[in-house]
Nucleic acid binder design. Sequence first.
DNA 1: GTCAATTCACATGAAAGAGACCACGGTCTAGTG
DNA 2: CTAGACCGTGGTCTCTTTCATGTGAATTGACGA
Length: 404
Amino acid sequence: MNMKSEIDEIFESFDKNKIFKDKLLLQSSYSPGEILHRSQQIKQIASILAPVLRGEKASNLFLYGKTGTGKTLSIKYVRDQLLKRLRKDNSFNLQIKYLNCKLKKVSDTEYRILAELIRKLGGEVPATGLPTQAVYTKFIEIIDSEKQLIVLILDEIDQIIKKISNDFLYNLTRLNSELSKTQICIVGISNNLTFLDDLDPRVRSSLSEEEVVFPPYNALQLQEILNKRAKEAFKEGVLENGVVAKCAAYAAREHGDARRALDLLRISGELAERSNSSKVTLAHIDEANEKIERDKILDVIQTEPKQFQFVLYSIIELSEKNQKPIFTGDVFNLYQDLCLKNKTEGLTQRRVSDIIQEFDMLGIINVRVISKGRGGRMREIRLAIPKNLVGKAKKIIEDSFNYQ
DNA sequence: GTCAATTCACATGAAAGAGACCACGGTCTAGTG
DNA sequence: CTAGACCGTGGTCTCTTTCATGTGAATTGACGA
Protein backbone atom coordinates (compact mmCIF):
# COMPACT_ATOMS: atom_id res chain seq x y z
CA MET A 1 0.00 0.00 0.00
CA ASN A 2 2.36 2.77 1.00
CA MET A 3 5.27 1.69 -1.00
CA LYS A 4 7.61 4.33 0.18
CA SER A 5 7.52 3.50 3.83
CA GLU A 6 7.91 -0.17 3.04
CA ILE A 7 10.98 0.52 1.00
CA ASP A 8 12.35 2.71 3.73
CA GLU A 9 11.72 -0.05 6.15
CA ILE A 10 13.71 -2.48 4.12
CA PHE A 11 16.57 -0.11 3.58
CA GLU A 12 16.76 0.81 7.18
CA SER A 13 16.83 -2.74 8.37
CA PHE A 14 19.72 -3.41 6.03
CA ASP A 15 21.41 -0.21 6.80
CA LYS A 16 21.86 -0.18 10.49
CA ASN A 17 20.55 -3.43 11.67
CA LYS A 18 20.94 -3.52 15.38
CA ILE A 19 18.02 -5.71 16.20
CA PHE A 20 17.66 -8.65 13.88
CA LYS A 21 20.05 -11.39 13.13
CA ASP A 22 17.74 -13.25 10.80
CA LYS A 23 14.27 -11.91 10.44
CA LEU A 24 13.20 -14.71 8.17
CA LEU A 25 12.79 -16.93 11.16
CA LEU A 26 9.93 -14.87 12.38
CA GLN A 27 8.08 -14.88 9.10
CA SER A 28 5.03 -17.08 9.19
CA SER A 29 6.20 -18.85 6.06
CA TYR A 30 9.25 -20.16 7.81
CA SER A 31 9.15 -23.73 8.92
CA PRO A 32 11.50 -24.68 11.69
CA GLY A 33 13.43 -27.89 11.67
CA GLU A 34 11.94 -28.94 14.92
CA ILE A 35 8.39 -28.38 15.99
CA LEU A 36 7.82 -27.91 19.67
CA HIS A 37 4.88 -29.34 21.55
CA ARG A 38 3.49 -31.16 18.58
CA SER A 39 5.38 -34.42 18.72
CA GLN A 40 2.24 -36.23 19.79
CA GLN A 41 0.30 -35.05 16.76
CA ILE A 42 3.15 -35.54 14.38
CA LYS A 43 3.59 -39.10 15.56
CA GLN A 44 -0.07 -39.74 15.06
CA ILE A 45 -0.06 -38.33 11.58
CA ALA A 46 3.06 -40.23 10.69
CA SER A 47 1.68 -43.53 11.85
CA ILE A 48 -1.55 -42.98 9.97
CA LEU A 49 0.18 -42.04 6.77
CA ALA A 50 2.96 -44.57 7.09
CA PRO A 51 1.30 -47.19 4.84
CA VAL A 52 2.00 -45.03 1.82
CA LEU A 53 5.62 -45.88 2.21
CA ARG A 54 4.76 -49.44 1.35
CA GLY A 55 2.69 -48.27 -1.54
CA GLU A 56 -0.60 -48.87 0.21
CA LYS A 57 -3.40 -46.42 0.54
CA ALA A 58 -3.52 -44.76 3.92
CA SER A 59 -6.72 -43.83 5.70
CA ASN A 60 -8.19 -40.50 4.95
CA LEU A 61 -7.17 -38.12 7.63
CA PHE A 62 -8.70 -35.08 9.13
CA LEU A 63 -6.83 -32.49 11.14
CA TYR A 64 -8.48 -29.80 13.08
CA GLY A 65 -7.57 -27.07 15.48
CA LYS A 66 -7.71 -23.32 15.61
CA THR A 67 -5.51 -21.04 13.57
CA GLY A 68 -1.87 -20.96 14.48
CA THR A 69 -1.82 -24.28 16.27
CA GLY A 70 0.68 -25.83 13.95
CA LYS A 71 -1.55 -27.95 11.74
CA THR A 72 -0.05 -26.90 8.48
CA LEU A 73 3.42 -26.95 9.89
CA SER A 74 3.05 -30.48 11.19
CA ILE A 75 1.57 -31.96 8.06
CA LYS A 76 4.22 -30.36 5.94
CA TYR A 77 6.84 -31.72 8.23
CA VAL A 78 5.48 -35.22 7.93
CA ARG A 79 5.23 -34.82 4.21
CA ASP A 80 8.86 -33.85 3.94
CA GLN A 81 9.91 -36.76 6.10
CA LEU A 82 7.89 -39.17 4.02
CA LEU A 83 9.33 -37.87 0.80
CA LYS A 84 12.82 -37.97 2.16
CA ARG A 85 12.48 -41.57 3.18
CA LEU A 86 10.93 -42.46 -0.11
CA ARG A 87 13.81 -41.31 -2.21
CA LYS A 88 15.96 -44.12 -0.94
CA ASP A 89 13.59 -46.73 -2.14
CA ASN A 90 11.86 -45.54 -5.25
CA SER A 91 9.95 -48.59 -6.26
CA PHE A 92 6.66 -46.85 -6.83
CA ASN A 93 5.29 -43.45 -7.50
CA LEU A 94 4.12 -41.41 -4.56
CA GLN A 95 2.93 -37.84 -4.78
CA ILE A 96 2.02 -35.70 -1.85
CA LYS A 97 0.39 -32.48 -2.86
CA TYR A 98 -0.50 -29.65 -0.58
CA LEU A 99 -3.22 -27.22 -1.54
CA ASN A 100 -4.50 -24.34 0.46
CA CYS A 101 -8.11 -23.87 -0.50
CA LYS A 102 -8.33 -20.45 0.99
CA LEU A 103 -5.86 -18.63 -1.19
CA LYS A 104 -7.61 -15.98 -3.21
CA LYS A 105 -6.73 -17.34 -6.58
CA VAL A 106 -7.68 -20.83 -5.66
CA SER A 107 -10.72 -20.92 -3.52
CA ASP A 108 -14.23 -20.08 -4.59
CA THR A 109 -15.02 -22.57 -7.28
CA GLU A 110 -14.80 -26.20 -8.07
CA TYR A 111 -13.24 -25.30 -11.36
CA ARG A 112 -10.36 -23.48 -9.78
CA ILE A 113 -9.65 -26.08 -7.16
CA LEU A 114 -9.45 -28.74 -9.81
CA ALA A 115 -7.39 -26.50 -12.03
CA GLU A 116 -4.98 -25.83 -9.21
CA LEU A 117 -4.70 -29.50 -8.39
CA ILE A 118 -3.98 -30.30 -11.99
CA ARG A 119 -1.35 -27.63 -12.09
CA LYS A 120 0.26 -29.05 -8.98
CA LEU A 121 0.36 -32.41 -10.67
CA GLY A 122 2.09 -30.91 -13.63
CA GLY A 123 -0.81 -30.35 -16.00
CA GLU A 124 -1.99 -27.24 -17.74
CA VAL A 125 -5.40 -25.71 -17.42
CA PRO A 126 -6.60 -22.34 -18.64
CA ALA A 127 -7.94 -20.03 -15.98
CA THR A 128 -11.38 -20.02 -17.47
CA GLY A 129 -13.32 -20.95 -20.55
CA LEU A 130 -13.47 -24.68 -20.15
CA PRO A 131 -16.53 -26.57 -19.01
CA THR A 132 -16.05 -27.75 -15.46
CA GLN A 133 -16.75 -31.27 -16.55
CA ALA A 134 -13.86 -31.10 -18.97
CA VAL A 135 -11.54 -30.05 -16.19
CA TYR A 136 -12.81 -32.83 -14.03
CA THR A 137 -12.18 -35.36 -16.75
CA LYS A 138 -8.74 -34.02 -17.27
CA PHE A 139 -8.07 -34.28 -13.57
CA ILE A 140 -8.96 -37.93 -13.51
CA GLU A 141 -7.01 -38.52 -16.64
CA ILE A 142 -3.88 -36.98 -15.27
CA ILE A 143 -4.16 -38.83 -12.00
CA ASP A 144 -4.88 -42.13 -13.60
CA SER A 145 -2.34 -41.82 -16.35
CA GLU A 146 0.05 -44.05 -14.50
CA LYS A 147 0.06 -46.16 -11.43
CA GLN A 148 0.71 -44.00 -8.46
CA LEU A 149 -0.31 -43.13 -4.98
CA ILE A 150 -1.48 -39.64 -4.29
CA VAL A 151 -1.92 -37.91 -0.98
CA LEU A 152 -3.93 -34.75 -1.27
CA ILE A 153 -3.59 -32.31 1.55
CA LEU A 154 -6.41 -29.83 1.47
CA ASP A 155 -5.83 -27.00 3.85
CA GLU A 156 -8.75 -24.89 5.03
CA ILE A 157 -11.05 -27.44 3.59
CA ASP A 158 -14.04 -25.82 5.25
CA GLN A 159 -13.82 -23.09 2.66
CA ILE A 160 -14.73 -25.59 -0.01
CA ILE A 161 -17.96 -26.47 1.67
CA LYS A 162 -18.82 -22.88 2.29
CA LYS A 163 -18.18 -21.70 -1.22
CA ILE A 164 -18.95 -24.72 -3.31
CA SER A 165 -20.84 -27.57 -1.77
CA ASN A 166 -20.74 -30.95 -0.23
CA ASP A 167 -20.85 -32.57 -3.61
CA PHE A 168 -17.33 -31.69 -4.49
CA LEU A 169 -15.90 -33.36 -1.44
CA TYR A 170 -18.23 -36.25 -1.92
CA ASN A 171 -16.90 -36.79 -5.40
CA LEU A 172 -13.40 -36.49 -4.11
CA THR A 173 -13.85 -39.11 -1.46
CA ARG A 174 -15.37 -41.45 -3.98
CA LEU A 175 -12.66 -40.82 -6.48
CA ASN A 176 -10.95 -44.11 -5.74
CA SER A 177 -13.75 -46.10 -7.26
CA GLU A 178 -13.40 -44.23 -10.50
CA LEU A 179 -9.72 -44.77 -10.77
CA SER A 180 -8.26 -47.91 -12.12
CA LYS A 181 -4.57 -47.62 -11.40
CA THR A 182 -4.10 -44.85 -8.93
CA GLN A 183 -5.11 -44.63 -5.34
CA ILE A 184 -5.79 -41.40 -3.62
CA CYS A 185 -5.81 -40.43 -0.01
CA ILE A 186 -7.15 -37.19 1.36
CA VAL A 187 -5.92 -35.17 4.27
CA GLY A 188 -8.32 -32.43 5.22
CA ILE A 189 -7.37 -29.55 7.44
CA SER A 190 -9.86 -27.25 9.05
CA ASN A 191 -9.71 -24.66 11.74
CA ASN A 192 -13.39 -24.69 12.18
CA LEU A 193 -14.12 -27.16 14.93
CA THR A 194 -17.78 -27.49 14.11
CA PHE A 195 -17.04 -28.05 10.48
CA LEU A 196 -17.60 -31.76 10.67
CA ASP A 197 -21.11 -31.30 11.94
CA ASP A 198 -22.30 -29.46 8.86
CA LEU A 199 -20.82 -32.06 6.64
CA ASP A 200 -22.83 -34.53 4.69
CA PRO A 201 -22.70 -37.74 6.76
CA ARG A 202 -21.42 -39.74 3.83
CA VAL A 203 -18.57 -37.36 3.33
CA ARG A 204 -17.88 -37.12 6.99
CA SER A 205 -17.48 -40.80 7.57
CA SER A 206 -15.11 -41.27 4.70
CA LEU A 207 -13.17 -38.09 5.14
CA SER A 208 -12.49 -38.52 8.80
CA GLU A 209 -11.54 -42.11 9.02
CA GLU A 210 -8.84 -40.80 11.28
CA GLU A 211 -8.73 -37.56 13.17
CA VAL A 212 -6.00 -35.61 14.84
CA VAL A 213 -6.80 -32.71 17.08
CA PHE A 214 -4.53 -29.74 17.56
CA PRO A 215 -5.23 -28.03 20.85
CA PRO A 216 -4.24 -24.40 21.24
CA TYR A 217 -0.88 -23.67 22.72
CA ASN A 218 -0.91 -22.31 26.22
CA ALA A 219 1.12 -19.29 27.21
CA LEU A 220 3.99 -21.37 28.47
CA GLN A 221 4.33 -23.36 25.29
CA LEU A 222 4.07 -20.24 23.22
CA GLN A 223 6.85 -18.79 25.25
CA GLU A 224 9.11 -21.71 24.55
CA ILE A 225 8.37 -21.52 20.86
CA LEU A 226 9.05 -17.83 20.78
CA ASN A 227 12.20 -18.18 22.81
CA LYS A 228 13.60 -20.74 20.50
CA ARG A 229 13.04 -18.63 17.45
CA ALA A 230 13.94 -15.38 19.08
CA LYS A 231 17.33 -16.75 19.97
CA GLU A 232 18.10 -17.21 16.31
CA ALA A 233 16.24 -14.28 14.92
CA PHE A 234 17.36 -11.48 17.17
CA LYS A 235 20.78 -10.32 18.08
CA GLU A 236 21.90 -11.08 21.55
CA GLY A 237 20.53 -8.99 24.33
CA VAL A 238 18.20 -6.82 22.32
CA LEU A 239 15.10 -8.27 23.86
CA GLU A 240 14.17 -6.59 27.05
CA ASN A 241 13.18 -8.80 29.92
CA GLY A 242 9.67 -10.11 29.66
CA VAL A 243 9.22 -9.24 26.02
CA VAL A 244 8.77 -12.81 24.95
CA ALA A 245 6.53 -13.53 27.87
CA LYS A 246 4.32 -10.65 26.98
CA CYS A 247 4.05 -11.65 23.35
CA ALA A 248 3.12 -15.12 24.43
CA ALA A 249 0.55 -13.79 26.83
CA TYR A 250 -1.06 -11.63 24.18
CA ALA A 251 -1.24 -14.47 21.72
CA ALA A 252 -2.46 -16.94 24.30
CA ARG A 253 -5.35 -14.64 24.91
CA GLU A 254 -6.18 -14.98 21.24
CA HIS A 255 -6.77 -18.73 21.46
CA GLY A 256 -3.09 -19.65 21.49
CA ASP A 257 -2.24 -18.54 18.02
CA ALA A 258 1.46 -19.05 17.48
CA ARG A 259 1.47 -17.25 14.17
CA ARG A 260 0.05 -14.22 15.83
CA ALA A 261 2.68 -14.39 18.51
CA LEU A 262 5.45 -14.50 15.97
CA ASP A 263 3.97 -11.63 14.02
CA LEU A 264 3.78 -9.65 17.17
CA LEU A 265 7.38 -10.32 17.99
CA ARG A 266 8.56 -9.52 14.51
CA ILE A 267 6.65 -6.30 14.23
CA SER A 268 7.80 -5.24 17.66
CA GLY A 269 11.31 -5.74 16.44
CA GLU A 270 10.64 -3.77 13.29
CA LEU A 271 9.18 -0.95 15.28
CA ALA A 272 12.12 -0.90 17.59
CA GLU A 273 14.42 -0.89 14.62
CA ARG A 274 12.59 1.93 12.98
CA SER A 275 12.56 4.05 16.06
CA ASN A 276 16.28 3.53 16.27
CA SER A 277 16.00 1.88 19.59
CA SER A 278 18.66 -0.59 20.51
CA LYS A 279 16.28 -2.75 22.44
CA VAL A 280 12.86 -4.19 21.95
CA THR A 281 10.84 -3.00 24.88
CA LEU A 282 7.50 -3.92 26.30
CA ALA A 283 6.10 -0.71 24.91
CA HIS A 284 7.03 -1.82 21.43
CA ILE A 285 4.82 -4.82 21.84
CA ASP A 286 1.82 -2.74 22.68
CA GLU A 287 2.59 -0.57 19.74
CA ALA A 288 2.95 -3.57 17.49
CA ASN A 289 -0.28 -5.02 18.72
CA GLU A 290 -2.02 -1.82 17.82
CA LYS A 291 -0.30 -1.61 14.48
CA ILE A 292 -1.34 -5.08 13.49
CA GLU A 293 -4.91 -4.26 14.29
CA ARG A 294 -4.74 -0.93 12.54
CA ASP A 295 -3.13 -2.21 9.38
CA LYS A 296 -5.60 -5.00 9.15
CA ILE A 297 -8.57 -2.71 9.32
CA LEU A 298 -7.28 0.06 7.12
CA ASP A 299 -6.06 -2.39 4.57
CA VAL A 300 -9.43 -4.02 4.35
CA ILE A 301 -11.13 -0.68 3.97
CA GLN A 302 -8.81 0.43 1.28
CA THR A 303 -9.07 -2.65 -0.84
CA GLU A 304 -12.83 -2.76 -0.66
CA PRO A 305 -14.72 -1.94 -3.87
CA LYS A 306 -16.34 1.42 -4.32
CA GLN A 307 -19.87 0.48 -3.44
CA PHE A 308 -18.71 -1.17 -0.26
CA GLN A 309 -16.89 1.99 0.66
CA PHE A 310 -20.01 4.04 0.14
CA VAL A 311 -21.91 1.78 2.46
CA LEU A 312 -19.19 1.90 5.06
CA TYR A 313 -19.02 5.64 4.79
CA SER A 314 -22.71 5.86 5.49
CA ILE A 315 -22.26 3.71 8.54
CA ILE A 316 -19.41 5.83 9.81
CA GLU A 317 -21.30 9.06 9.25
CA LEU A 318 -24.35 7.79 11.05
CA SER A 319 -22.51 6.37 14.00
CA GLU A 320 -20.58 9.59 14.42
CA LYS A 321 -23.74 11.65 14.39
CA ASN A 322 -25.75 9.75 16.90
CA GLN A 323 -24.49 7.61 19.70
CA LYS A 324 -27.37 5.23 19.49
CA PRO A 325 -27.00 2.09 17.45
CA ILE A 326 -28.05 2.44 13.84
CA PHE A 327 -30.19 0.27 11.65
CA THR A 328 -30.25 -1.09 8.16
CA GLY A 329 -32.84 1.38 6.95
CA ASP A 330 -30.85 4.42 8.07
CA VAL A 331 -27.75 3.17 6.37
CA PHE A 332 -29.57 2.43 3.17
CA ASN A 333 -31.17 5.88 3.04
CA LEU A 334 -27.94 7.72 3.62
CA TYR A 335 -26.25 5.45 1.16
CA GLN A 336 -28.75 6.38 -1.51
CA ASP A 337 -28.26 10.08 -0.83
CA LEU A 338 -24.56 9.54 -1.12
CA CYS A 339 -24.93 7.84 -4.46
CA LEU A 340 -27.14 10.61 -5.69
CA LYS A 341 -24.63 13.23 -4.68
CA ASN A 342 -21.86 11.36 -6.40
CA LYS A 343 -24.01 10.70 -9.42
CA THR A 344 -23.49 7.00 -9.01
CA GLU A 345 -25.98 4.30 -9.65
CA GLY A 346 -26.93 2.85 -6.28
CA LEU A 347 -27.39 -0.76 -5.42
CA THR A 348 -30.58 -2.38 -4.29
CA GLN A 349 -31.40 -2.75 -0.67
CA ARG A 350 -31.02 -6.48 -1.01
CA ARG A 351 -27.44 -6.06 -2.03
CA VAL A 352 -26.65 -3.46 0.59
CA SER A 353 -28.00 -5.85 3.15
CA ASP A 354 -25.47 -8.41 2.05
CA ILE A 355 -22.70 -5.87 2.04
CA ILE A 356 -23.47 -4.98 5.61
CA GLN A 357 -23.25 -8.59 6.52
CA GLU A 358 -19.92 -8.90 4.80
CA PHE A 359 -18.56 -6.01 6.79
CA ASP A 360 -19.64 -7.81 9.88
CA MET A 361 -17.67 -10.84 8.83
CA LEU A 362 -14.65 -8.70 8.19
CA GLY A 363 -14.94 -7.42 11.71
CA ILE A 364 -15.31 -3.81 10.73
CA ILE A 365 -18.75 -3.55 12.19
CA ASN A 366 -20.74 -5.54 14.68
CA VAL A 367 -24.17 -6.60 13.67
CA ARG A 368 -27.08 -8.12 15.48
CA VAL A 369 -30.48 -8.89 14.08
CA ILE A 370 -33.13 -7.46 16.32
CA SER A 371 -36.84 -7.20 16.10
CA LYS A 372 -38.65 -4.10 17.15
CA GLY A 373 -41.95 -5.83 17.13
CA ARG A 374 -44.25 -4.03 14.87
CA GLY A 375 -41.45 -1.62 14.15
CA GLY A 376 -39.98 -4.32 12.00
CA ARG A 377 -36.99 -6.55 11.95
CA MET A 378 -33.57 -5.24 11.12
CA ARG A 379 -29.89 -5.30 11.82
CA GLU A 380 -28.50 -3.26 14.62
CA ILE A 381 -25.15 -1.99 13.49
CA ARG A 382 -22.27 -0.79 15.57
CA LEU A 383 -18.95 0.37 14.22
CA ALA A 384 -16.10 -1.82 15.40
CA ILE A 385 -13.30 0.44 14.27
CA PRO A 386 -11.38 1.92 17.17
CA LYS A 387 -12.20 5.58 17.67
CA ASN A 388 -8.76 6.83 16.79
CA LEU A 389 -8.94 5.11 13.43
CA VAL A 390 -12.30 6.39 12.34
CA GLY A 391 -10.90 9.62 11.00
CA LYS A 392 -8.25 7.83 9.04
CA ALA A 393 -10.75 5.37 7.67
CA LYS A 394 -12.96 8.21 6.53
CA LYS A 395 -10.10 9.88 4.84
CA ILE A 396 -9.17 6.77 2.93
CA ILE A 397 -12.66 6.48 1.58
CA GLU A 398 -12.88 10.17 0.72
CA ASP A 399 -9.62 9.93 -1.15
CA SER A 400 -10.85 7.09 -3.22
CA PHE A 401 -14.01 9.05 -4.00
CA ASN A 402 -11.96 11.80 -5.50
CA TYR A 403 -9.97 9.50 -7.65
CA GLN A 404 -12.76 8.85 -10.05
C1' DG B 1 -56.69 -9.01 31.36
C1' DT B 2 -55.60 -12.69 27.89
C1' DC B 3 -54.60 -14.70 23.62
C1' DA B 4 -54.15 -15.27 18.85
C1' DA B 5 -53.91 -12.78 14.63
C1' DT B 6 -51.79 -9.04 12.35
C1' DT B 7 -48.18 -6.23 10.78
C1' DC B 8 -43.88 -3.98 10.13
C1' DA B 9 -39.28 -3.74 8.05
C1' DC B 10 -36.48 -5.93 7.03
C1' DA B 11 -33.63 -10.82 6.79
C1' DT B 12 -32.70 -14.62 4.09
C1' DG B 13 -32.90 -17.69 -0.11
C1' DA B 14 -33.06 -18.97 -4.83
C1' DA B 15 -32.66 -18.00 -9.40
C1' DA B 16 -31.34 -15.67 -13.07
C1' DG B 17 -29.11 -11.68 -15.78
C1' DA B 18 -25.24 -8.65 -17.23
C1' DG B 19 -20.77 -8.07 -18.56
C1' DA B 20 -16.02 -9.49 -18.45
C1' DC B 21 -13.01 -13.00 -19.51
C1' DC B 22 -11.59 -17.05 -22.03
C1' DA B 23 -10.99 -21.67 -25.01
C1' DC B 24 -12.14 -24.04 -28.86
C1' DG B 25 -13.15 -25.00 -33.58
C1' DG B 26 -14.20 -23.31 -37.97
C1' DT B 27 -13.47 -19.95 -41.66
C1' DC B 28 -10.98 -16.50 -44.07
C1' DT B 29 -6.73 -14.37 -45.70
C1' DA B 30 -2.27 -13.86 -47.16
C1' DG B 31 2.04 -15.69 -47.90
C1' DT B 32 4.69 -19.53 -49.87
C1' DG B 33 6.14 -22.97 -53.17
C1' DC C 1 -1.37 -25.50 -49.59
C1' DT C 2 -0.82 -23.89 -45.03
C1' DA C 3 0.05 -20.78 -40.97
C1' DG C 4 -1.94 -17.32 -38.72
C1' DA C 5 -5.78 -13.79 -38.13
C1' DC C 6 -10.46 -13.52 -37.09
C1' DC C 7 -15.02 -14.76 -35.55
C1' DG C 8 -18.89 -17.15 -33.38
C1' DT C 9 -20.25 -20.19 -29.84
C1' DG C 10 -20.37 -21.64 -25.50
C1' DG C 11 -18.27 -21.92 -21.12
C1' DT C 12 -16.88 -19.70 -16.18
C1' DC C 13 -16.85 -15.90 -12.72
C1' DT C 14 -18.32 -12.02 -10.18
C1' DC C 15 -21.53 -8.83 -8.94
C1' DT C 16 -26.01 -7.70 -8.99
C1' DT C 17 -31.18 -7.69 -9.53
C1' DT C 18 -35.68 -9.89 -9.14
C1' DC C 19 -38.86 -12.48 -7.01
C1' DA C 20 -40.24 -15.08 -2.96
C1' DT C 21 -40.49 -16.46 1.44
C1' DG C 22 -39.31 -16.14 6.42
C1' DT C 23 -39.35 -13.99 10.98
C1' DG C 24 -39.66 -11.92 16.11
C1' DA C 25 -42.19 -9.26 18.83
C1' DA C 26 -45.13 -4.94 19.42
C1' DT C 27 -49.75 -3.96 18.38
C1' DT C 28 -54.42 -4.86 17.65
C1' DG C 29 -58.73 -6.49 18.42
C1' DA C 30 -61.86 -10.07 19.80
C1' DC C 31 -63.22 -12.42 23.70
C1' DG C 32 -64.36 -13.72 28.31
C1' DA C 33 -64.23 -12.70 33.29
